[in-house]
Computed example of a mutant assay.
Amino acid sequence: MHQKNSKRLKKATKTRIKLRQLAMPSLSVHKTNQHIYAQIFSGDGETTLVSASTKEKGLIKDGESGCNIKAAQAVGKAIAEKAQKAGIETVGFDRSGYQYHGKVKALAEAAREAGLKF
């Protein structure tokens, strides 16, 4: 495993431990070179309550990149709408060790604008 990735995962583990101590649902973000994924886990971190990603049909247009700021905003809006339908209003934000800028920031701000609180 590369050193950069192992440092990121170490940060992510610390965050996840803290979120489980708070026993509140958490919004987790994962990104690859092709796609962006977001999931809301239960307070114990074992059950996925809702999820959204750029792999879903209709979220991004054919031929567009699945991993850019525009795509991240679409995923943020989609996850917030699904969460509200499931009765989830407040979550903890788990950025999975990624820096809070660019795509991660765009996803978080879009989710906040769509009504999710964290």
Rank of each mutant, 00 (worst) to 15 (best):
H2Y: 05
Q3M: 07
Q3T: 11
S6H: 06
S6F: 08
K7I: 15
R8T: 01
L9S: 13
L9K: 15
K10C: 00
K10T: 09
K11I: 02
K11F: 05
K11R: 15
T13F: 14
T13A: 14
T13G: 08
T15V: 14
R16C: 01
R16K: 15
K18N: 13
K18F: 04
K18D: 13
L19Q: 15
Q21E: 15
L22P: 00
M24P: 00
P25S: 06
P25W: 03
L27P: 04
V29E: 07
V29W: 07
H30I: 06
H30A: 13
T32V: 03
H35V: 08
H35M: 06
I36V: 15
I36W: 06
A38H: 12
Q39I: 02
Q39F: 05
Q39T: 08
F41W: 15
S42Q: 09
D44I: 03
D44P: 00
G45T: 03
T47V: 14
T47Y: 09
T48D: 04
V50W: 11
T54E: 04
K55S: 07
E56A: 11
E56R: 06
E56C: 02
E56P: 02
K57M: 00
K57G: 05
K57Q: 10
L59M: 11
L59D: 11
K61S: 14
D62H: 07
D62N: 12
E64K: 14
S65N: 13
G66H: 04
G66Y: 04
G66W: 06
C67D: 09
I69A: 10
I69T: 15
I69L: 12
K70P: 00
K70F: 03
A71D: 04
A72I: 01
Q73F: 00
Q73Y: 00
A74T: 02
V75I: 11
G76R: 09
G76Q: 14
K77S: 15
A78K: 14
A78E: 12
A80G: 07
A80D: 11
E81Q: 14
E81Y: 01
K82P: 07
K82E: 11
A83W: 07
Q84N: 07
Q84M: 11
A86G: 01
I88G: 04
T90E: 14
T90A: 05
V91I: 12
G92N: 14
F93S: 03
D94P: 01
D94W: 10
R95W: 09
Y98T: 02
Q99C: 01
H101Q: 15
G102Q: 11
V104K: 04
A106N: 05
L107P: 02
A108S: 13
A110T: 03
A111H: 03
A111R: 04
R112L: 04
R112E: 10
R112C: 01
E113C: 00
G115N: 13
L116N: 09
L116Q: 06
F118D: 03
F118G: 08
F118S: 04
